[in-house]
Design a protein around this nucleic acid. Structure first.
Length: 288
DNA sequence: CACCATGTTCCTTG
DNA sequence: CCAAGGAACATGGT
């Protein structure tokens, strides 16, 4: 589920639901997701704490809680990894097989489910500090983007996945933004011309903003247990036949390019798939 | 059995 | 010190 848009939509969904709720009990069935926090510390700190806010930074969720007695504030950091979900269930609830952590909130049960357990829910907040700027904020300018690409010999696609460069782009939206800006994923980052940097900067913002809009305008199945919605959480092709295809190139290997009709290709970069149109996305560098 | 999967972190190499 | 590449983590779908 999780790149910046998916996390943003989830945060907007959960924030009002969690606001003011008190944690009565904590159950950790997979201590690995707390890393490096211990189960004992985690449980002891969260028990009787109250949710006061929820925000997003890159692909991370940032929960704010107030301690049981007093005004002290505590940060709890969440990450969905590749397969994580977070949602509330009405009690009494049957927890899914891959529940990593659950919390008793009185009338509701908070569930962090994660099939592959790559996700996290932790009191350790260090990861947040290593993140680059938010791509949808005014802090992230074309100049900052250009400067960050200037000295890198890595292919631009690989560079976009670097969370210290700009936070929140993942494998799907990296391919989508490069397609939209007509740039080959193989070009070394420092070879991008001024015009290409500007187009890519704009494409990243558009692609992310549009995905958020899609997410908030669709009915979603957060726990993935609704027959009617077919488990549809966010993207995932063919999950819903009634919805239009959300991606131009991602996952479209062998299908025709929506612009020129040539076949979409896949290439492996840094052990991950990149999808692109060989005709629309030129390998040529622009003017610098 | 093969290959694929929305991510991050750690280790090695240069 | 840094950049870059690869493995590890873990479970499932096709």
């Amino acid at each position: 589920m999780p790149e910046l848009p998916e996390v943003e939509v989830l945060v907007r969904h959960l924030r009002p639901l969690l606001y003011g709720k008190v944690i009565h009990a904590v159950h950790v069935s997979r201590p690995r997701v707390l890393r490096p926090t211990s189960v004992r510390t985690f449980t002891q700190k969260l028990k009787k704490a109250r949710f006061t806010n929820l925000s997003r930074r890159g692909k991370f969720l940032l929960f704010t809680l107030s301690q049981r007695k007093g005004v002290e504030t505590m940060g709890l950091v969440g990450h969905l990894g590749m397969t994580g979900r977070m949602y509330l269930l009405s009690k009494p609830a049957t927890l899914p097989k891959h529940t990593a952590v659950s919390m008793d909130l009185g009338d509701k049960q908070f569930v962090f489910e994660d099939t592959r357990y790559f996700g996290r829910l932790t009191l350790e907040t260090g990861a947040i500090e290593r993140l680059g700027p938010e791509p949808l904020s005014n802090e992230w300018t074309t100049d900052i983007f250009a400067e960050a690409l200037r000295n890198s010999t890595q292919p631009i696609k690989v560079k976009l996945l670097d969370q210290s460069l700009v936070a929140g782009i993942g494998n799907i939206y990296a391919s989508e933004a490069l397609f939209r800006s007509g740039i080959s994923p193989k070009i070394p980052a420092r070879r991008l011309g001024k015009g290409q940097v500007l187009q890519l900067w704009r494409a990243i913002r558009e692609v992310l903003a549009e995905a958020i809009d899609r997410g908030i305008s669709q009915e979603l199945d957060y726990p993935g247990d609704s027959k009617r919605l077919d488990g549809f959480f966010y993207f995932g092709r063919s999950a819903r036949e009634d919805l239009p295809e959300p991606f131009s190139v991602y996952g479209r290997l062998g299908e025709p390019c929506l612009i020129c009709g040539k076949v979409i290709r896949r290439l492996i970069q840094a052990s991950r798939s990149t999808f692109y149109c060989p005709h629309c996305q030129t390998a040529k560098s622009g003017r610098r």
